[in-house]
C-alpha cells in the first residue's frame, strides 16, 4: 500500500451516467489528473456512452427530477422543457467560469493524452457502432480488457 508513499500514478474513471453534471465530474477529474502528471483513462459504459456518441454529446442535460440538490419540486422538474431550461442555465454558468462544452472538453482530454474506451456490452445493448462515437475513443473493449489496462502500482479506480 505504501509504494512511492502512496503516490497516485493513474486514474481509471468509469463513467456510467449521461447527465451533464456526472459527465463533467468525470472529465474534470481526468483532465485534472493529467494536469498533475497523473495518467488517466475513461471507460464509457451504459448511459455514459452518450458523452461520446457524436449525435448525442451536444445534447446532454442536467437531471431536474430525482435530484434534491436542484431544490425544485419533483412535479415541477418533470414539466416539459424544464430539463432543457435548467441545462441551458447551467451551460451559461459554466461558460462564465471558462468551462469548455462537452465536445471541446473531449478534444482537450484527447490532446492531453487521456485514453478513452467504450464498453462492449453497453455498445451491443444500445446498438451503437464504433463509428457512432467520438474519434478519440480508441477501442470498444470488455470489462476484462479494462481491468488489464488498470494493472500496476499506484492505480486508482473511480465509478461515476
Amino acid at each position: 500500500m505504501n509504494e512511492n508513499n502512496g503516490a497516485i500514478k493513474k486514474m481509471m474513471i468509469i463513467l456510467s451516467k449521461g447527465t451533464l453534471e456526472n459527465v463533467y465530474a468525470a472529465f474534470v477529474l481526468a483532465n485534472g489528473a493529467r494536469m498533475e502528471g497523473i495518467e488517466a483513462e475513461i471507460f464509457f459504459t451504459f448511459f455514459g456512452l452518450e458523452a461520446v456518441h457524436k449525435k448525442k454529446l451536444e445534447h446532454l442535460h442536467v437531471a431536474t427530477v430525482g435530484n434534491p440538490a436542484m431544490h425544485m419540486p419533483t412535479m415541477l422538474g418533470g414539466l416539459p422543457g424544464m430539463e432543457a431550461l435548467a441545462s441551458s442555465m447551467m451551460k451559461k454558468e459554466m461558460e462564465k467560469i471558462d468551462m469548455p462544452d462537452v465536445h471541446e472538453f473531449l478534444d482537450i482530454l484527447t490532446a492531453s493524452g487521456v485514453r478513452m474506451w467504450a464498453c462492449k456490452l453497453a455498445m451491443d445493448m444500445f446498438h451503437y457502432k464504433k463509428e457512432d462515437l467520438y474519434e478519440g475513443v480508441e477501442e470498444v473493449i470488455t470489462v476484462g480488457d479494462f481491468y488489464k489496462h488498470s494493472q500496476g502500482e499506484g492505480v486508482h479506480m473511480l465509478f461515476v
Binding site: 483532465n31 493529467r34 494536469m35 471558462d98 471541446e104 482537450i108 490532446a111
Partner: peptide, 20 residues
C-alpha cells in the same frame, strides 16, 4: 490572465498536445 490548459489551447502560440 488566469492561466488554464484551455487557455493554452487557444493561445495561438502552442496547442495542448505540443504543450504536453
Amino acid at each position: 490572465v488566469a492561466l488554464s490548459i484551455r487557455r493554452i489551447g487557444k493561445s495561438g502560440v502552442t496547442d495542448i498536445k505540443e504543450f504536453y
